[in-house]
Design a protein around this nucleic acid. Structure first.
Lengths: 110, 110
DNA sequence: AAATTTGTTCGTATTTTTGCGAACTACGAA
DNA sequence: TTCGTAGTTCGCAAAAATACGAACAAATTT
């Protein structure tokens, strides 16, 4: 019973869902992709990439930060964002395992 | 401009976000994992795995179907669900490329 | 000191998601 | 025909997500 937070879902499934949920919006995918490919990653640069208001960008960034996929540091008067590589790798591993575990041999619906 | 649906986000980013969103709930992750590992995959079997009402399970299944990750066929009086392998592989490829594209060399926030 | 730059936070509105029970459909069994 | 089984759909309620402008904070420039 150690894999369960509250007897509903396993911790791993909760974690994977959390990562997936954070990626579940095109703006956030775009942000992650941008950060993953660039050196300079100030808030303003990110905002320029997106067709949404800065308040909304800030909110999306906060969600990505809460999910652990990015991190930010103040470089007054700017804020520098970047990928959280440690958790990025964790997420990558989670998705990798998840997709690999689909058996080719199952007979359902074929 | 062919990569854009409506000049907001690229089609690929929209698609990846759609897959991610579908995976963004522990119940749906659990369903996908179950289907990916089992031969028998009737609605009832799925329902038994989850701590939620059948109406809710049905709704989650519909979302997964809309995202293209699963498919169902009627086997009266039951309904047999399974992974949509074609789209599963597409999703796998999308996530794979996405996570790989994080350059190790970027200097931001280090 | 006043103004500018760079983001965040607040308040609010709208939409979407999540969840459930009850009603319904479709079929086979009694 | 009536009943039971297996799921879906409907109607609703509560919560969360999305989005924005306005107000705010912190530092620098004028």
């Amino acid at each position: 019973m150690d894999n369960y937070i509250n007897k509903d879902y396993t911790i791993d499934n909760e974690q994977l869902a959390r990562f997936a949920k954070a990626m579940g919006h095109p703006a956030r995918i775009t942000i992650l992709q941008f950060l993953a490919s660039m050196d300079s990653c100030y808030f303003g640069d990110i905002h320029n990439e997106l067709p949404i208001a800065k308040a909304t960008v800030s909110q999306h960034l906060k969600e990505l930060k809460n999910a652990g996929l990015i991190q930010g540091e103040i470089e007054t008067p700017k804020v520098k964002y970047c990928i959280n590589r440690e958790n990025w790798k964790k997420a990558q591993a989670f998705f990798d395992v998840f997709f690999k575990n689909c058996k080719e041999k199952t007979s359902c619906c074929h």
